[in-house]
Computed example of a mutant assay.
Amino acid sequence: MKLDHTARGVFPIAPTPFLPDGAVDTKSIDTMCDFYFSAGATGLTILGIMGEAPKLDADEALAISRQVIGRCEIPVIVGVSAPGFAAMRNLARAVMDAGAAGVMIAPPPSLRTDDQIVTYYHNAIEAIGGEIPFVIQDYPLTLSVIMTPAVIRRIVMDLPSCVMLKHEDWPGLEKISALRAFQREGSLRPLSILTGNGGLFLDFEMERGADGAMTGYCFPDMLADVVRLSNEGKRDEAHDLFDAHLPLIRYEQQQGVGLATRKYVLRKRGAIAHDAQRAPAGKLTETARAEIDFLLRRLAKHDPRARF
């Protein structure tokens, strides 16, 4: 089940479930995996930014990975970004031995020039091994690293184990178009492109050539439907469904409480037992919870999955 460039559909970014005391909620890991599978996910991505990976120690990260991989019937991508290559190598090799499909690597915020970015990925793959399929995480809004289409092309063409781009630039529609143009002209080999940013631009990203979504929006089943409808050429239906969810997608985009919002709704949907995060973390006020409930009631008029 190794990842390759043909990957399509929805690979939700999964949260890490915690108990109110901050311990990992192992029971909710199983219910969460089952929830994503039933929602139409074609794969799952864990230990990303949404997964609060920096708040986990090495043993916890590996234990969570093994449990998710053992529970899921779909490919699992594991985020292995780390300050040093030794930790990245150890986690990457351990999760691949456990049955992961591939790993995701984000660039450190210190990178500034094109050559620095390309060199970093060369060094990372030398460390983990060229036999491990990997995903480039392009998220300049959080990571502050600007990757141009030309830089992404250099990485992909230099490193055969690069099979996917997690595209989270904003605005980023033109970047997708540029990369697909490189492929048409023959200067870029085939590459899976899954998009993030909470799904905020998924409707048009699909039309620009994305293969699907890799994001943590609390209705992954909606993301799966939009991807399917777009692939079927049902443009108006895809946009109508997307537009119904847009107010909640927008609410999730708030810095500081986005993950709290997602976990709150995922708890209400039965995916996890608690909406707890590890400190430091943003928290929802009672007013914020009431606003989310209001958005869910309005959404339920158009999508019955929002009725709890």
Rank of each mutant, 00 (worst) to 15 (best):
L179T: 12
E252V: 10
L19A: 11
T6A: 07
G198R: 06
A106W: 03
G270F: 04
P140A: 10
T261K: 02
C218G: 10
D34R: 15
T26F: 15
S177W: 11
S81D: 12
L296T: 05
N123I: 06
L248H: 09
I272S: 04
I77P: 07
I49T: 15
P304S: 06
R93W: 05
L47D: 02
H167C: 10
G198H: 14
H122R: 15
K268P: 01
A213V: 02
E52D: 07
M32F: 08
R208L: 10
I292M: 06
R184G: 07
L159A: 06
L194N: 02
P133C: 13
F242I: 07
A260V: 05
A150Q: 10
I176Y: 09
A41M: 03
A300L: 09
G48T: 10
Y120R: 12
S28R: 08
T45E: 04
T6L: 11
G22Q: 07
D34M: 03
T261M: 05
V227A: 03
L246N: 05
L19Q: 13
V163I: 08
F242M: 02
G258D: 09
E232L: 15
A94N: 13
L202I: 15
D158E: 14
I128A: 00
V68N: 11
D34C: 05
L246E: 13
I146Q: 03
L173Y: 01
I249S: 12
D115I: 06
R262H: 01
R153V: 07
P109N: 13
C33T: 11
T195Y: 02
A100S: 09
A290D: 11
F37S: 06
D303P: 08
F35Q: 01
F308Q: 12
Q67A: 04
A127Q: 07
Y139Q: 04
D21I: 10
P220Q: 03
A61G: 06
A238N: 14
K283G: 10
F37P: 00
E168F: 07
T287P: 00
V163N: 00
T119W: 01
I117V: 15
T285R: 02
A178Q: 04
T142A: 02
D275W: 07
L191G: 14
R184F: 02
K175R: 03
R8F: 09
G130H: 05
I13P: 01
V226A: 06
C162V: 15
D225E: 14
L159C: 11
A86M: 08
E52P: 13
K55G: 09
A279V: 13
P75C: 14
M147Q: 08
S161F: 05
L188M: 13
T287G: 11
T119R: 14
Y264A: 03
L241F: 09
R208P: 00
G102R: 05
F219G: 04
P140R: 07
L266R: 08
R8T: 07
D138F: 01
D293R: 02
I49R: 14
G172H: 04
P190G: 04
F85A: 08
A58Q: 08
E207I: 15
L241N: 08
N123R: 12
P247A: 00
I292E: 01
R208D: 03
R8W: 06
D57F: 07
C218F: 07
